[in-house]
Design a binder for these strands. Structure first.
Lengths: 365, 365
DNA sequence: ACCAAAATTGAGAACGATCTCAGAAAAAGT
DNA sequence: ACTTTTTCTGAGATCGTTCTCAATTTTGGT
């Protein structure tokens, strides 16, 4: 298109133009070019035009890395997610990324798959990459060294969805209340034998007794369940509560175990979206029907929760608000330079749908 | 805990230690410290130990930004996703992030929400941030300037899921074949009146005639549908095909329009997971049943597709393999410095489940 | 004990921007 | 025309690394 005849084999990709190249072409000093390109200071209109033209001609793209080194800020946030693919975290990612962008930040994302070692190295790498702040969904409640003040080297952090025993900002949902509301609803509908299936990484499958080391969100849900049952004066049978270490076979086994127990619950509370899916799968596999043979309440309003039949009654996690708050808090810490460490706990609300059977004797209304 | 009595109000956070500080404390030159910390060159064991001790004492964390400036490489990949929250892309993100990490790269993620302007600026910012390469799910088929050779300034790029009319590497699924297989299956089951509901951003709702500017994946699916119908000798009624610009109201209206048309299709092909969800929602809303009143085949094996009742027959997008291939291709381009531009098209396979009714006359078997 | 070879170290220049400070040019005041 | 401002510009330091190159020390051979 440009030149016929001597068809050269694609022009060799020239080294990207630097501000020096622009300055040279515009016949001004580097400082002046920087003023124009960085839009600060005073530059004669004429000079500005020349520089801009030179930049355009060279296709100049600023090297933000170099700028960052001088400025000491990278306009980059680190986001450490425990499990990409889990509805609630996917939404969190979307909101964090979009919200950060609105504030002029980009987001470096890491996925730990609930693995502590992955989390450790991801945090280290992000610190090395000089992120201005970190949003972390911590995957473990132990080994907090790398999230301690020393480990963080003073960089602002906000924990999302899960808290730790550390003086760090955090934004979580009121998991305990959410679980209590769910149990209360089941009780209200006449259920008394209520099971609990918990999905939890890093923990060996345990039955009945509550294992130590649960991440805070799950731990609070479990506590809420027990608390609500206790308040209702119902003794929880050990066979009603099962823990699964993965969303596949282990989860299936846990659900099966509950459904096969002699004193079988009429309703189940699933600890997260993956566990809801596992229950759905197991129930479908044995040819039973949710809402009839067994009622179910899950956590997390995944996109499919409302369209399945029967639609799933869930405890909604206000993850969009949580993620937004996390970004706001983080950027507050960054810009105000104030350690505005605060813990925000947002309420969860029960969304009633069709997966809970009404066991009350027919009303005499 | 550390010191009772004079409880100082948290030690002031010292400026992070640089390699100079380490060198100074270890009483060696910056160069030697760098050799130890960077693990290259020859350093006396004794000196090494001293430096290491100094680094540990100061809690030294390398400034990778500075290293990047010198090295000209950031070990960072850019990932530009058209829509976080859509199952297929969430999986792509997970795989890209995990796979990049395995190769020693971090990933900067941007979400365009199918918006061209967002894509444009995201790419610019990532280029400025000196990513070593980009994986892009392009949101538009027009305005390719910023993905042209000039716009990219020679940085390697791999297009994922969708191609463009540009000489860039790409990894896609065989959408046309997938659509054809889906239609073929429906035909095989005795359906002849087959509808198509298309979810597509950036396009005004159009009926019947195929709008220009569809992204390649969707375009290929539409073409595959028409092609399969034509091969079967079936003329597609204009009222069978609808386009929706959003997953909410517009999608509902499109599905309604098809279901209310006089020559109502007995089966629907939904262009992506969001559209499947929209069909499910609309059908549920009108009290009809999938697999009975209307059959459905979707694209993308979202986590819920197999657990709903009836489970959804889908065209599986091999997104994990695609994302892996994209990362491999990109890193190949980066490290080999060879423009190994290649287009990979992976096959899609139909996963038969329960959402397609068998309309064939009872077999005489 | 002496010299060559090998091992170890440090000084200083990059990388690409920004920013301070002082000097030059232009504008304004007398 | 000659100061006095004001506006504009450039030289050079700086950010934290890495890396080249030369200088120095150590080792080894005789």
């Amino acid at each position: 298109m440009k030149q016929l005849g001597n068809d050269a084999p694609e022009p060799v990709i020239a080294a990207p133009a630097t501000i020096n190249d622009v300055a040279q072409l515009a016949e001004v000093s580097r400082a002046t070019a920087s003023r124009v390109l960085g839009e600060y200071g005073a530059v004669k209109a004429e000079t500005r035009a020349t520089v801009l033209a030179a930049a355009a001609e060279l296709g100049y793209v600023a090297n933000v890395i170099a700028r960052s080194m001088r400025a000491g800020t990278t306009q980059t946030l680190g986001l450490i997610i425990a499990e990409i693919g889990l509805s609630v975290f996917d939404t969190a990612m979307r909101v964090v990324i979009d919200s950060a962008r609105a504030h002029g930040y980009q987001v470096l994302v890491a996925n730990t798959n609930e693995d502590l070692e992955a989390e450790r190295t991801s945090i280290r790498v992000m610190l090395e990459k000089q992120v201005d702040g970190l949003i972390v969904v911590p995957s473990s409640v132990t080994d907090l060294d790398f999230l301690s003040a020393a480990g963080l080297r003073g960089r602002p952090v906000v924990l999302l969805d899960r808290t730790l025993a550390l003086p760090l900002s955090s934004v979580t949902g009121d998991n305990r209340q959410g679980a209590k509301d769910a149990v209360a609803h089941l009780l209200d509908r006449g259920h008394t034998k209520i099971g609990l299936v918990v999905f939890t990484a890093n923990i060996q499958g345990a039955t009945g007794e509550r294992p130590a080391g649960l991440i805070s969100s799950i731990n609070d849900r479990v506590e809420g369940y027990y608390e609500a049952m206790a308040q209702a004066g119902i003794e929880v049978a050990p066979s009603w509560v099962h823990y699964a270490g993965d969303a596949g076979e282990s989860a299936r086994a846990a659900v099966e175990a509950i459904l096969n127990s002699e004193n079988r619950p009429t309703a189940l509370l699933a600890s997260n979206a993956n566990m809801s899916l596992a229950v759905l799968r197991a129930v479908k596999a044995r040819g039973a029907a949710i809402g009839q043979d067994v009622s179910l309440i899950g956590f997390d309003d995944a996109p499919w929760a409302s369209i399945i039949t029967p639609s799933l009654t869930i405890v909604n996690i206000p993850i969009e608000a949580m993620a937004t708050a996390a970004v706001d808090n983080l950027i507050g810490q960054i810009s105000a330079d104030v350690r505005s460490k605060g813990s925000v706990v947002l309420p969860m609300n029960l969304v009633l749908r069709e997966s809970v059977a009404d066991l009350r004797p027919t009303s005499t209304l």
